[in-house]
Design a binder for these strands. Structure first.
Lengths: 214, 214
DNA sequence: CACGTTGTCTACCAGTTGGTAGACGTATTG
DNA sequence: CAATACGTCTACCAACTGGTAGACAACGTG
């Protein structure tokens, strides 16, 4: 009772900022930007909205901080894969594994990705500039693997777009999956991952053993 | 001036309902449910919010009406394809064409699909039950084509999920496309469609058996 | 110990939200 | 022509929105 009056840095300190970011990621990822209110976030945190506005000057500011934070996480996750030295479909497999792990453990992250890549999103450029390097690296990877004859030749950027759509969709479209009869159980998820890899393997395998393109 | 006072059924009549549905589809599809306000819609229509609430008893009611309406449109578009009698990859091609046409001419529709298939969406079941028959038909189609040897064998429902993800993603992810360097021009769209078909052809062709990895 | 800094709070606020109540003009119909 | 149904409106409203102003307690430092 009396403790409640003893607010100040001792009670929470700067880790409040961390907690706000976490809860905000959750809410923005699950409900979207517009459907998330500062009051709601504050209530979930057991603090007042004004404390949020102390750490982040506005709702949009908070949103952008969440994006930056998440982009850093994503970059780390994929750096790990690309540093693994795997080649061809094995690296693709590793990325798919990573994506599914994310979908199971932190679905909000993928929700945020979905939210922020919505056509016309005002903050699209935010995640874009953060994630752009990842895309460039992935494109280079595809190009290399094409030359090495391990992946079917095509426009690497376009192919990457197809891959992205397929993987993110497969990982994100839970409601659609449910509609076609897959309840979101672990078993069904594992099956989805396996089918996805089969699909990608078919889509990426080089038709001819070693197509040489100048 | 004086005309404005002469409201009543003569001025607009029941086509007001139609106009509301159209504008609402636009807004819900572009901005999402939460970011759309009845006042905003009304202003865009040159009427008062209360008129909207006369035709639709609540915002949610309007949203569901829009979904039903859109589902009917989608069903028509795909009935057309499946009645065409095309087989194998040719029907797939026809569906992709249909999807791209939709993306160019009525992007809001795909925006609505995206909105309503969001994980945890409260109205997911709405579109789901409406679109379910389409999915079933598509699955049967895939199964038939597999037996006929025109499409690579796999679990048809799972394969359908992959196809859905790829096509909808490719058609929807405009911001991601921009990030990898494709401005949303007509030319780039045509290229995206072509690449998508190449991708799907590779993924579906039976004569491209995936190397089996346990 | 005095004093500024930091982190949280209470108290507000103006604007917007979805929604209700009811007036009013028009058209239809007995 | 009276009565009724219909479609739109004006007038509100309580709840909620993001955001400001400023009090206040704890801490760190001279």
């Amino acid at each position: 009772m009396v403790d409640e009056l003893r607010y100040g840095s001792v009670v929470a300190g700067a880790d409040t900022k961390r907690r706000i970011l976490d809860v905000a990621l959750d809410a923005f990822g699950r409900d979207g930007y517009a459907a998330t209110s500062l009051d709601g976030l504050a209530e979930g945190l057991g603090i007042r909205k004004q404390t949020i506005l102390y750490w982040f000057s506005s709702k949009r500011d908070l949103f952008e901080a969440v994006i930056d934070d998440t982009a850093a996480d994503l970059a780390d996750a994929f750096d790990e894969v690309s540093d693994s030295g795997l080649t061809g479909l094995e690296q693709v497999q590793a990325i798919v594994d990573q994506a599914f792990r994310l979908a199971v453990r932190r679905p909000e992250v993928l929700g945020l990705v979905r939210e922020v890549t919505r056509p016309g999103s005002l903050t699209a450029s935010r995640l874009a500039t953060r994630v752009r390097p990842l895309f460039d690296r992935a494109r280079d990877f595809l190009l290399r693997e094409m030359h090495a004859g391990r992946i079917r030749c095509s426009d690497p950027a376009m192919l990457l777009l197809s891959l992205y759509s397929t993987v993110v969709g497969m990982v994100t479209e839970l409601e659609v999956a449910r509609t076609v009869g897959f309840e979101p159980t672990l078993r069904a998820t594992v099956m989805r991952r396996r089918e996805l890899m089969r699909f990608l393997r078919a889509a990426l395998s080089p038709e001819n053993p070693a197509p040489v393109i100048a």
